[in-house]
Amino acid sequence: MSVTWYECKVKYRKTHETGEQKVTTDTYLLDAVSFTEAEARINEEMAAYTSEEFKIMNIKVANFSEVHPFENSDRWFKSKVSLIALDEESGKEKKSNTYLLVQANDVKEAFENTTQAMQNTRGDYTIPSITESPILDVFPYFSGDEEEIAGQETVENKKEPAELID
């Protein structure tokens, strides 16, 4: 199942390290099934994040195919990855671009993390560009019902289709 990621720009009063309060606009990323759900989720996340009043300035679909968080990293980078395929008819190489959002501390580490994220790719690829993203934080969807052990769903939480209808 593919995930749709939404970039949400939120304007609010933020207290900086100096103790000074300034109105700022920050960008956050979250996954949702619609713009309506994205708006509801960013409202929920921001309400937990700040006690100040905030305003959602913009919500748009982000063009990330995958998001890869890495521990001990504090910034997000947009990696353009060109997948290379051979066109059998013409015999020419054909490139298709995809974008990954990877967490890292600098561009060099972002390149290494992109390479690590792509390690199970069977085809050839290149990484033509990596740029720092304005995204401050990522909020992936968790329903709270998931109880996973090493990435496997437990039998107790697995519902049969008939149980979902009732």
Rank of each mutant, 00 (worst) to 15 (best):
A85H: 14
E71K: 14
G19H: 07
G144C: 07
A32L: 06
Y125C: 06
T115Q: 14
F77H: 03
E109I: 01
T18F: 03
G91A: 02
Q21I: 13
K80P: 00
V61S: 02
A48W: 12
F139D: 05
A85F: 13
E7P: 00
F77M: 00
E109Q: 15
D124K: 12
H68P: 00
F64Q: 03
Q119P: 00
S73G: 10
Q119L: 08
S82A: 14
M1T: 12
S133W: 00
A38R: 07
A110R: 08
V155W: 10
I42C: 08
Q21E: 15
N58L: 08
Q119F: 09
E147Y: 11
R41T: 07
E7H: 05
E163H: 06
N43W: 10
E20H: 11
K55I: 05
I135Q: 01
L30H: 02
E89K: 14
K9Q: 14
N113V: 02
T25W: 01
A62M: 01
G91S: 05
A85I: 06
R13N: 14
I127R: 02
T4R: 09
E93R: 15
P161Q: 09
A62Q: 02
S90R: 12
Y12E: 11
S34H: 08
M1R: 11
S65N: 05
E146D: 08
A47T: 15
I59C: 02
E53F: 12
K11S: 15
R41C: 04
I59A: 03
V67P: 03
G151M: 05
S34F: 04
F139Q: 04
Y141A: 11
E53C: 02
N58W: 02
F70R: 14
A40T: 15
I165D: 13
K22W: 04
D166R: 15
M1K: 11
D31R: 03
M118H: 07
S51K: 14
T131W: 04
Y12C: 11
P140W: 08
K92H: 13
D166Y: 15
T4F: 01
V33T: 14
A47W: 06
Y6G: 09
T154C: 08
A62Y: 00
T50R: 07
E20D: 12
A40C: 08
K92A: 10
D87V: 03
D26P: 01
Q152C: 07
K78Q: 10
F70S: 12
W76H: 03
S143E: 09
K158Y: 10
Y28D: 00
S79T: 14
F142L: 08
Q103T: 02
D26W: 09
T126Q: 09
F111P: 00
F111V: 05
E53G: 03
R75N: 09
V23E: 15
D87F: 04
L83Y: 07
S65Y: 00
I42M: 15
E71Y: 10
A104Y: 09
E37H: 10
E37V: 14
A110G: 05
G123W: 06
K108P: 00
G123K: 04
V23L: 09
A162C: 07
D137N: 14
E71C: 03
K60R: 15
T98S: 13
E20T: 15
N63Q: 11
S65K: 01
N43Y: 11
I127S: 02
G151I: 04
E45R: 12
M118P: 06
Q116G: 01
E53R: 13
Q21L: 06
E44D: 13
R13I: 13
E52R: 12
Q103M: 11
Y141F: 15
V155Y: 12
Y6W: 12
